[in-house]
Design a protein around this nucleic acid. Structure first.
Lengths: 254, 254
DNA sequence: TTTGGCCAGTTGTCATGACAATATCACGTC
DNA sequence: GACGTGATATTGTCATGACAACTGGCCAAA
């Protein structure tokens, strides 16, 4: 008795690959496959065409096809088995967490984000901040504290510390664009972030800011983010209203 | 002025590669590099030897070396920059989250795990369970509810549902080994898990089970896990004492 | 009927080679 | 001295080829 649905594979439409454009071929292929999965064209449990045949049909080498498939495996949508083939994972698909800011998350879900800026000041680094940012204790840092709102409902209180060089950031930019957008516009590209997710009770001040009753449960997230040169560019302590925000994580065993 | 420390690279000891063993070469290399980073031999900000030279020195091809490095980049320990090289990320290194059970997490931190089994029964799937497990509503499932303890202190209350075929699981196994170990011993290998992390207040019963005051904040995690054939093998709703447990996540932008 | 082995299919690993894109640095010119 | 420009170094992408390891089913033998 076969354990899995052994559906055949449709996947007829795979023509328009730009070989000369700036978009890598493996990326074009992986996007098309992912789209086919999300749209239901490749149903859960169905088998993908094997790597060699797919490559031949698309006029691509096996490493290129393989990398395209691997991208989707890493997202948790496909599962490979040696000797068997590649299959679509069962279960409803959920979007995976990426290295984004709350601002991006909200706009992606069609909410209107806004910001109340509580604090924007230069502040000498205390021991914890210094360690997280990799600077000397007492060095100046940019300290900011914000309330983030979605459709005018408060969602989170965020406190961030940034290295000295960002001290010139304008309050108006922060209110209009969100921190990560401001950093991007200054040429900073985030590459790695280490997050710590927990929970605790709200303080009286936080309860007021978030418009919840005091001693409510809060979802907390500490984050240190690094740019593409491996330097820490942001350290933040955030707390979220758990009825309005939560984290999704997809884990893939290798 | 150079932005980063441009230390040279030591990395002298790279001899003993087993070319005929079952361990892939890229894995042997990546483990050695990772060890060198963790041990401080490759300090934060230092540059790694370039891919071509490293490959030549080890007698390996560039794709192999490249894959070894990529493994570590995916873990968030290294950062690559085209035209520059590969550098060690700044900041203290933290363990990344993997697809493990609480049981593994506790033993890894040298705590003694134990389990109070509250419920172990066959139960027809309700709508939510059926959807998560990908079975028909009303189908029998194995329902279990446990309190997990570390050094005899309650850490979490976990409620899980498993597909019909696991109904024969022994209570003794669950108390002695933890759910994931039991599943592994039955030939199930977890491959993908989708987790949802949030927070809420504790119920009166949960407060008693976890030995905390009522209306405390709880850290919650819902998880659906899939095996290597893409089939859902576990759906769980867990809640943790936030003073004893939290989640670490490392995100890498691609 | 059951058992064992062989064979075909598929992914996993590795080598070699080539060119493209990007960042740094030295150099020369204005 | 400032600026552009080219040379150099390094990672990013892609092709081709080969063999290994694992799975499943078919088939013959016990």
């Amino acid at each position: 008795m076969s354990v899995q649905d052994e559906k055949t594979l449709p996947m007829g439409m795979f023509m328009d690959l730009q070989r000369s454009g700036p978009i890598p071929l493996y990326f074009q292929v992986s996007q098309r496959i992912e789209k086919a999965i999300l749209s239901g064209e490749l149903p859960a449990g169905s088998r993908l065409e094997n790597e060699v045949a797919l490559g031949q049909r698309l006029g691509l080498s096996r490493p290129t096809v393989r990398r395209a498939i691997q991208e989707i495996v890493d997202k948790g949508l496909l599962v490979r088995r040696r000797g068997i083939g590649t299959q679509v994972v069962h279960g409803q698909v959920t979007r995976k967490v990426e290295l984004t800011s709350l601002y991006d998350d909200l706009t992606n879900t069609h909410k209107v984000p806004s910001t109340h800026l509580l604090t924007l000041e230069s502040q000498p680094a205390d021991a914890k901040t210094a360690e997280r940012l990799g600077v000397a204790e007492g060095n100046p840092t940019l300290h900011l504290r914000r309330v983030r709102l979605a459709d005018d409902v408060p969602v989170a209180v965020m406190e961030n510390w940034l290295p000295e060089e960002f001290i010139g950031i304008e309050p108006n930019d922060l209110v209009a664009h969100g921190l990560y957008q401001v950093l991007r516009s200054r040429g900073v590209t985030m590459r790695v972030a280490r997050q710590h997710i927990g929970a605790r009770k709200s303080t009286i001040e936080e309860s007021a800011l978030l418009e919840i009753e005091k001693n409510s449960a809060l979802l907390t997230m500490d984050r240190t983010a690094f740019d593409n040169s491996g330097r820490a560019v942001e350290f933040g302590q955030h707390c979220y209203r758990p009825d309005l925000y939560s984290f999704e994580v997809t884990l893939v065993e290798k």
